[in-house]
Design a binder for these strands. Structure first.
Lengths: 210, 210
DNA sequence: GTCTATATACGGATAGAC
DNA sequence: GTCTATCCGTATATAGAC
């Protein structure tokens, strides 16, 4: 919408500023706990203007939710479907990518997982646009490797779950973790940087048959 | 409160019934999305009675939150501080315990993590009562093992994070996971049962120096 | 203790001026 | 496009009858 105007810098249009403010507040507090007033305050504008641009809190939320889900899920498809990189390298890249993205957006996983949890039915509609790649190239690679017999005879879902768990969960549990260990934010980020190397190593050990 | 009355079966007193209903609703929808009306409906009583017993939605929530945090954190202390079991066995028991508890209360982690996230400051007060065991017996065991030199030279926080990640995260991501794989609830639970054996195995491999 | 009826506040959304 | 003022539904909490 509104792209018919010759915008000088579209990144800082009022509409974009409100959207950015909304993304921050929604992501931090979730849909229900966010008041339109909070977004108004955060953006520097007022309630009326938010509804002028987005009609309602709910419509604005849908836009943010979609963007956050994209950020959370869609960004990995390029990696997963690249035909040049090996399986092992793909896993490395995936983990690096997620950790970098989550250091920039630490609140994202809790937000997405919480909203999905409070209304799992909406998930189906929202994920429709991602359904495109049902069998990614990475799956083919996995099957090829499995055919050679070097992979541990365990349901592969376990390994996917392990990669995502070890990568994403620390961000989800970060406040608790920091509270228990006395780590600072900076130390936590450092820990996650270390994990970029460690997790692929651990995963390799799990995958390879002994 | 109210423990001065000779209650025949305190487990099914009205107060307990409301508390149980509140626990279910709050845990499913979170504080902000829960209306006192929902709790009234779920309990079979009405709003007035809820306020009669608990004064306000917020006070009731604090009680539930505390109980859920206890369930989430406190229950492991017995395991962690037992002086009879080996380190490896402790890890096994811990994982078993969590998986059993989370199969019964699948919504618990998202609830706790979300509420903590939306207000990390309250965490400090709420966790005060748990602060008791700063150096659990398990830590002593870890240090003893580390002194023998058989443990990989990596920050031990990584291993704690890995155990919790691989155990808890699947429950957090369960709706997403089920949506992507087409698993049923029953199949998911079965997967988690398998992980009771697998996770300790993986962790051992990670810990032991190669 | 438990209910119905109601006061009061709060939040989302719009009207209308500029 | 952006603001102020306001409307109106909904949610919490209480008063008061039983």
């Amino acid at each position: 919408m509104k792209d018919e105007q010759p915008q000088i810098d579209p990144g800082i249009s009022t509409e974009e500023k409100i959207k950015e403010a909304a993304r921050r507040v929604f992501t931090r507090k979730g849909y229900a706990a966010t008041r339109t007033r909070d977004i108004a305050e955060e953006s520097g504008y007022n309630i009326a203007l938010i509804n002028y641009y987005f009609r309602s809190k709910e419509k604005l939320f849908e836009i943010i939710m979609l963007a956050n889900m994209q950020l959370f899920l869609h960004s990995v498809l390029d990696i997963v479907n690249d035909r040049e990189t090996t399986l092992h390298r793909k896993i490395e890249l995936l983990i690096e990518h997620y950790i970098d993205m989550l250091i920039k957006n630490p609140g994202l996983p809790v937000f997405v997982l919480n909203e999905i949890n409070s209304d799992p039915l909406k998930l189906v509609n929202r994920l429709g646009f991602i359904e495109k790649h049902p069998d990614a190239y990475i799956i083919k690679q996995w099957k090829e490797l499995a055919a050679t017999g070097v992979i541990a005879p365990i349901n592969p879902v376990h390994f996917v779950v392990n990669i995502l768990s070890m990568t994403i969960f620390p961000f989800v549990a970060s406040p608790l973790l920091r509270n228990r260990t006395g780590m600072t934010q900076e130390e936590f980020n450092q820990l996650m940087q270390e994990r970029k190397k460690l997790i692929p190593m651990w995963i390799s050990e799990m995958i390879l048959k002994k």
